[in-house]
Amino acid sequence: MKIVLVAVPGSGKSTTLKFVREMLSDVAIVNYGDYMLEIAKRQYGITNRDEMRKKLPVDEYRKVQELAAEEIAKLPGDVIIDTHASIRVQGGFYPGLPDRIMAKLRPDAIVLMEFDPKDIMERRAKDVGLRDRESESPEDIEMHQLANRYYAFAAANAGECSVYIFDFRKKVQSRPFEHAEMAARMIVDLILRGRSATK
């Protein structure tokens, strides 16, 4: 299976993927932005993501996006692709998974993780100094999660794949990282069901 995993920044995707790797060590986990950066380094001498966004003309940036999708699509076995359904830009949102990318990626599923905005704000507060993020209100975060839903469904339509929504808004954590563990178990279950269906 190829699964695209999306959530707003600070949702705990990295922690969730760490648990997935512990539960199912043979799954390949790839970061879409890392693939883009490697291609931009090879072809344009770009050294980091900020430089890639600022220096590459839009047409070249789109080419890099497409080349990354082509490379990821060729990966064998079960693959989880860590990326964004929507990207916040100047008060609006930009599609993270446009049709031309979905046509090349051809994933089996998009998994969308959603949380109580207060939980996300708490997680982001722990990241202070580690990541440079703009301050957002709970309403801003909820709006981004709503945008993610719309963009995930649009992307699924273009890629002809399923969307799974893991909504943790009403699930209060009884211990740290419980949400991430729960999400990881749900992703692993999805992969194992996919494996048994192909036997």
Rank of each mutant, 00 (worst) to 15 (best):
V6N: 02
A197Q: 10
D108G: 14
D189H: 10
L105M: 05
Y151N: 05
A197W: 07
M36F: 10
C161L: 11
E122Q: 14
L97Y: 05
A125I: 05
L5N: 01
V172Q: 11
E71I: 00
L24S: 10
M36Q: 13
D108M: 01
I187H: 04
V4L: 08
I3Q: 02
S25L: 09
A28M: 03
A152C: 13
K118H: 13
L130F: 04
G194R: 11
E51Y: 09
L105D: 01
I81D: 05
K63L: 12
T83S: 10
D189Q: 15
E22A: 12
T16D: 00
I120S: 01
K104A: 12
P98L: 08
F115P: 00
G33R: 01
R195V: 00
R21L: 07
K2C: 03
Q65T: 02
E71Y: 07
G91R: 08
E22G: 12
E134K: 06
A183F: 04
E122H: 13
S174P: 02
E136Q: 14
M182E: 13
K170A: 06
Y150W: 12
S11I: 00
N157L: 15
L192V: 06
S25Q: 12
I110S: 05
R100T: 12
E114R: 15
G96P: 01
A103K: 15
E178V: 11
L75S: 00
G10S: 00
A180F: 09
Q65A: 04
A69C: 07
Y32V: 00
G12Y: 03
R21S: 13
L130M: 05
R149M: 11
R42G: 11
M143K: 15
L75N: 02
F168S: 06
A103I: 12
L37C: 06
N48S: 06
M1V: 01
K54P: 01
K55S: 13
Y35G: 03
M113R: 01
V64E: 08
A85M: 09
D82W: 04
L17C: 10
R123W: 14
P117C: 06
N31W: 02
T16H: 03
I80K: 08
S86N: 06
A7G: 07
V163S: 06
M186N: 10
D99P: 15
A154K: 14
A180C: 11
A184S: 12
A158S: 15
K55L: 11
